[in-house]
Design a protein around this nucleic acid. Sequence first.
DNA 1: ATAATTCCTATTGACAATATAGGAATTAGG
DNA 2: CCTAATTCCTATATTGTCAATAGGAATTAT
Lengths: 141, 141
Amino acid sequence: MKISTKGRYALEALTYMASLEKDTPVNIREIADQTGIPLKYLEQIFFRLRKSGILVAKRGPSGGFLLNPALPQITVGDVVRAVETDIKPVVCLKSREHCESGIYDTCVTRLLWKRISDAVESVLDGVTLQSLGDAYKEKKS
Amino acid sequence: MKISTKGRYALEALTYMASLEKDTPVNIREIADQTGIPLKYLEQIFFRLRKSGILVAKRGPSGGFLLNPALPQITVGDVVRAVETDIKPVVCLKSREHCESGIYDTCVTRLLWKRISDAVESVLDGVTLQSLGDAYKEKKS
DNA sequence: ATAATTCCTATTGACAATATAGGAATTAGG
DNA sequence: CCTAATTCCTATATTGTCAATAGGAATTAT
Ligand code: FES
Ligand code: FES
């Protein structure tokens, strides 16, 4: 079981942003520098985050990214689902069609993976970016 | 997040074995045939399972593998830990030394990964092989 | 002896994750 | 306008891990 760097990077970057509590756009280069995430890779990640509505972008000089103010409570689950390609630990959980082994109906392990998946998502959905940002600010001070 | 085939295969194979409730060795080729798992790959997996004490092997003609009778309650967690290289979703959870980014002490996301990891292991440790085997037998009949 | 089995390691192959690259589109400010 | 700063978007290269194959050694029942 691995959490991909996409998910980790996204969360670290957004945590940093949340800790700033700014209402003006934050330059992505600053974020990359502060977090050590490769700039061009972070661009791709932010691209997805914007498409999914978590971030709002402003282009041009003094532009940057902003946590979408219309979403007062962004959860870690929102973020991870936006950037991770598959959040489900086994493909069979996506749908019956995704099961490659043709034993879907008699499969006894799928239920187990489902329980694991639910447990993970329940943690993810229970933590907000704001709380992470606050904790970050606290530690820095 | 992905569960590797090692973990899945191990569980499917052992579930099949548990459903047989035999006290004589089961031929690994039979298991490979019944489950569709590549034989030589399954050998590697069983090798690990034996080294970790979950399986007992008997070599030579009419040999095979047997669920270790000295372990009355094998859990799914035991199995997955035996075959999976890293069960922790991020390396930082293994130990402070494993964190590559030198921000261990101020890292606020690690706690989140820890909660996820705990949630997963709690599910894994709560399901026994026996229960899976019983369910399998039930479905087959 | 022989054949059937597990034992163990090495190597290859396939694929996804990671990262880099390059230019297009947009916009603030002079 | 013009320029520079920024995000936007896609394509490509690189890397690394997982999955699978291979081959022979050790063991043992008959
Ligand atoms: S193998 Fe697909 S549902 Fe179990
Ligand atoms: S990055 Fe290693 S502890 Fe958070």
